[in-house]
């Protein structure tokens, strides 16, 4: 690093920063583990909750907060499917299509939802409101088929119940 570059404090403000409350929460969290690196996944969950997704800058910020190298953060972010490096719609509809759900009509359900929203699996509606994805077994096969809406489980989902849910979300607006 060149010594001249050391002083610059520019455009830091535009980038994502944890709030002071978050930082305090993180400090307490780190103490629960033998090493700060263990707090990485919980802190990434917080960052994703706060900033919507994990941009490279956000990942660097998380690395700095925990005293890790960027590569250590990158490896974790890309390994786990719940961490997103791109923004998604305000409502993330995750349809389980694994064994139990598949045997109970999940494929038809996801096709129906895509048709209603006029998108393909993995896409976001142009208004940025809905993203539909297929996920692996959600661990709720007793209530197949299962759809998670922003991490809230909807069990025994049907085309009708999903249509109603989508309408409800639309009415609520994207928040």
């Amino acid at each position: 690093m060149s010594a001249d570059a050391v002083v610059s404090e520019t455009d830091r403000s535009e980038k994502n920063r944890f709030s002071d409350e978050r930082l305090a929460e993180i400090e307490a969290l780190v103490k629960r583990y033998p090493s700060a690196q263990s707090a990485l996944m919980p802190v990434l969950h917080m960052a994703q909750e706060d900033f919507g997704y994990l941009s490279m800058d956000t990942q660097q910020m998380v690395a700095d907060v925990l005293g890790l190298r960027l590569m250590q953060v990158r490896e974790v972010v890309t390994f786990y499917t719940m961490f997103r490096e791109q923004p998604c719609g305000s409502y993330l509809l995750e349809v389980c299509t694994n064994a139990g759900c598949m045997l109970n009509g999940a494929n038809e359900l996801v096709a129906h939802m895509c048709k209603t929203l006029q998108i393909n699996i993995g896409e976001t509606t142009p208004d940025g409101m809905f993203t539909v994805t297929e996920v692996e077994c959600a661990g709720a096969c007793g209530g197949a088929p299962v759809v998670q809406v922003n991490n809230v489980y909807h069990e025994k989902a049907t085309p009708e119940s999903m249509d109603a849910l989508i309408a409800e979300c639309r009415a609520a607006g994207g928040q």
């Binding site: 190298r69 590569m71 250590q72 990158r74 490896e75 890309t78 390994f79």
Partner: peptide, 9 residues
């Protein structure tokens, strides 16, 4: 240096 890593799975 630890700057080579494994991304994705």
């Amino acid at each position: 240096t630890g700057d080579i890593g494994i991304l994705n799975r």
